[in-house]
Design a protein around this nucleic acid. Structure first.
Lengths: 248, 248
DNA sequence: GGTATCGCTTGATATGGGTCAATTTGCGCG
DNA sequence: CGCGCAAATTGACCCATATCAAGCGATACC
């Protein structure tokens, strides 16, 4: 199977574009064949719960298309989103018996699943695979820590600006575009989902978006399509380092 | 070298007590010998910066004794703690050229360091080591996500109660004690550090601790020594699930 | 022994964002 | 084309936490 024919979201190596990230067909043809044998596809409709906190997880998976969220919930219903799963993202931790949070489909999604046991067995034997997963997990950890700064110390306005600039950048990286100057993209989340992500209420999200629009930091076409006339301005509003440098 | 003679904080296997966590002398004597050859010790005084965001990191390390914190900082000085390094915790991610945050010694600390390059080379060859690091990183990720819920959705009182119960449990696990009923421990952090951890101001931390004391949830001897008459009560105040179950 | 300092506590006041409630917008569907 | 409903907006009010400020107690240092 040629590298370019791989289904979107297939596990591939670190040299490939962002959407393919764990084991490379070119680098490891034998391993890829083995992965092919233990994989299957599952699809879920928007709103469906893919994994419930406490579930026995019998598979690990990579998102092929669509968007899902990881959420933590308190007994009284307060919820906090703790991660966003976009195409190519991996879910289901090898070695974990149970899930610690809910995975909920935001749009219809398709996932490429691997049965847990054979996947873990394979990981035992192939350092390359364990290392790729380690890299991906470290990336997630960095993102989670960045998010902790946002949740703990940023104002509502900065939180919104941060979220917009992150979505803009992920969008740009998928389309292989630079994320500077004027940019347009669709919001893949409702106001409520944004609020859960940012530790705010949906009313505050709405008010801050209106404020940014009123002040010309963003333009809105409909409720979901955003145009940012000047990414630098948005990054400034987000309170991020002006050098934009992602260290680490 | 007998297993029990290993210096506190040495990398060991998953079957060992919490303080020894990456590679096991009994399981992998050869590898341990190799690790022995590339390791050295470094100590830092309280307040010293061990690693500065943006640093080229030439080593990875495991905390042997003392406490350090991971912090993120914004340009205007707002800081958010994003991790706590206790004895046995690992820092310096293989494959990362630069640090993404500051590591600051809270007390005098001793670290067991491994030169980066040989460590990574060794990881290439030993699936066991990469897998142990993956496990540890997944644990950290779970903790980070738990923390995101706290930062985004908990009240000041719940935040304080959560922090106290986490410290109590870590303390108990180090001393191999159960973490139920009546417990005593020392706070390893100043009020300001607690505030940075919780996304609060130090005044609010102080007020909430006073309130918990006034209401009998905790007792204080001096400013740092805490006694919890009833862990269940504290957990209730923390807003955590009453079943106490750590799923995942 | 006196005093400067640091960590902490407590009080008074200000304010950002939450809460509750009323509309408005926009989209799917008969 | 208009109905119905969910999502989003906007307003009024309130409260939890931040901010600013004063004072306390222990420890270190001359």
């Amino acid at each position: 199977m040629a590298h370019d024919d791989l289904p979107h979201g297939t596990l591939t190596c670190g040299e490939c574009p962002i959407r393919h990230r764990a084991v490379c067909a070119r680098c490891e043809p034998t391993e890829l064949g083995e992965l092919e044998r233990i994989k299957y596809y599952r699809s879920f409709e928007a709103g469906q719960t893919v994994i419930w906190a406490g579930d026995q997880m019998d598979f690990v998976a990579s998102v092929v298309s669509g968007i899902a969220t990881l959420t933590q919930t308190m007994e009284d219903g307060r919820t906090q989103m703790v991660g966003l799963l976009l195409p190519s993202d991996f879910v289901g931790r090898p070695g974990r018996a149970r899930a610690a949070y809910n995975v909920i489909a935001t749009t219809d999604i398709l996932m490429c699943c691997f049965r847990r046991k054979p996947f873990e067995d394979m990981m035992e034997r192939t350092p390359h695979l364990a290392q790729r997963l380690l890299q991906m997990t470290l990336d997630e950890l960095d993102a989670a820590r960045e998010w902790m700064l946002l949740l703990g110390r940023k104002t509502a306005r900065e939180k919104i600006a941060s979220l917009l600039s992150i979505i803009a950048r992920r969008d740009a990286s998928v389309n292989m575009m630079p994320s500077i100057g004027r940019m347009s993209f669709d919001l893949p989340l409702t106001r409520e989902a944004m609020a859960d992500y940012l530790g705010l209420t949906l009313e505050t999200v709405s008010r801050q978006i209106s404020a940014l629009k009123r002040e010309g930091v963003i333009e809105l076409a409909g409720k979901r399509h955003v145009t940012v006339p000047d990414m630098d301005r948005l990054m400034f509003e987000a309170g991020d380092d002006s050098d934009g440098g992602l260290v680490g």
